[in-house]
Design a protein around this nucleic acid. Sequence first.
DNA 1: AGTCTACATGTAGTCTCTCTATATGTAGGC
DNA 2: GCCTACATATAGAGAGACTACATGTAGACT
Lengths: 109, 109
Amino acid sequence: MNTDALRGHMDALLLSVLEHEPLHGYAIIEALQERSGGALTVPTGTVYPALRRLERVGHLDSEWATVGGRKRRTYRLTPAGRAALAGERSAWRAFTTAIGSVLEPHRTS
Amino acid sequence: MNTDALRGHMDALLLSVLEHEPLHGYAIIEALQERSGGALTVPTGTVYPALRRLERVGHLDSEWATVGGRKRRTYRLTPAGRAALAGERSAWRAFTTAIGSVLEPHRTS
DNA sequence: AGTCTACATGTAGTCTCTCTATATGTAGGC
DNA sequence: GCCTACATATAGAGAGACTACATGTAGACT
């Protein structure tokens, strides 16, 4: 289902999934899976490092919690992260428009 | 205009631009630029190696020609390349659908 | 008691592709 | 003579996604 075409879009996905509620890594993976209708199965070795990277650059911050004896690191968007998400969204639209116009021959008008 | 988000989509772009006519590297770069409305400026250091890679895996083959004293290597789709293009197209649709459904919150219906 | 699955996080190392920078050469206009 | 457009090519850097591994708790089932 996924090649390494995700490259450069992981940030957008992670920020987007955290837009309305803070989540921990495992829940983020499930949310991505669910929201994409099962198409996105992102491995833990991709998600956890990416979350840390986003925290390092100030788009997320995190907090530890213990729920039912299990430790969770819950991530939430920072204001900078929210701004970055907006940028990612418009970049995504520009990206799909550009590639799409090359890939899909249609519409000369 | 372009980050390295192209990663994994170059093949699709190159195959697509060669679908209806064989072209040489330089012309391919111009075609990409034109078809995308100027959004895609792909450097030569990306295109030439990618073309050779696609030739190596059998999706393209090439032929030298001299036009006006200048040497050109003209690439054309092989049958395998044509099949690969079809695959790339459906992969692209699946990809945009998946990412889009995560990124754009709308439409619950 | 032992095993298995779901929950939960993390890192080291690999892989592969895109980009930057550089090199080389022709043709034509100024 | 110089500059721009045309035309191809490669070496090296850089970055991020993946595989595989390591670790541990909770609960269900046998």
